[in-house]
Design a protein around this nucleic acid. Sequence first.
DNA 1: GGCAGTCAAGTACGC
DNA 2: GCGTACTTGACTGCC
Length: 302
Amino acid sequence: MKIGYPCINRTVKCCSARTFRLSSYSEERLIETTAANLMCLEKILEFNRAKSILFFRITSDLIPFASHPVCRVDWEMHFKSDFDRIGKMIRTYDMRISMHPDQFVLLNSPKREVLENSISELKYHAKLLDLMGLDKSAKIQIHVGGVYGKKKEAMERFIDRYKYLPENVRERLVIENDERLYSLVDCLSIHNSTGIPVLLDVFHHSILGDGITQLDSLKLSQRTWLPEDGIPVVDYSTQQGGARKGKHTESIDLEHFSDFLRVSSSYDFDIMLEIKDKELSAQSAIRVAQTDERFSRVTKGC
DNA sequence: GGCAGTCAAGTACGC
DNA sequence: GCGTACTTGACTGCC
């Protein structure tokens, strides 16, 4: 069991997701911003290593406009040595990496242009992970997409299009249940037709769960992961008090997290904390997990 | 330097 | 029809 957080670290005084306006685009700007982002990513990984945080979600903004037609820079070659170095660091530290393209990636959209942009974006994500030499356990997680008034057809479109994705995208892609449209049951149905692993979001499942218990949700999602996918990943959060339903908490609820570890003790998985204060909650979670055999097994020597 | 409006991209929902 | 939410700031032009 590894515990991690997404994209941003406020303790390290830099941002690995710096970008700029499309109207300000130039090759120089792209190279300068990407170089700064990569340098910051290394700093964050070093911070994580020092704190035994061995799971991290890399921002999709690492290379601004990488999948946009405006981008003509051969960033793969230009930053090859950086990708080599960062990839080696990740492998040496035995870290797990994931990515989560944003809401514009919709494989089941009825609009051709949206589909094409989505595939370009997924190719960029897969290329980045490939360039770092990471194995297939470095996953790219997406949601199933929109419903467009006809859910069955929307799911069929996802299944059909998944089959035609480039292999290096398919090998890394996983789907995550959301809290409004596609439940765990829907994701499992897509898994049955495609083999795509299902990443369980325990918070979303608590909102849209189809009556499936937390323990059963862990069991059902775990079965969708093959050995080469690495151990399953679970997204964890809780409700922010007083906010709209589905809003992620500002800071981890350690009592709830401790209960979750106890209830789930018969399963092993990596935990991505989708919590606003990021690395602070990750460090709190790790303190709680110290006594958990699943966690201590992988952090020996850190 | 500070501020407020805006930012590549989609969709669903509440008002 | 518009504003908002999603992982949320960060960039930009104007004063």
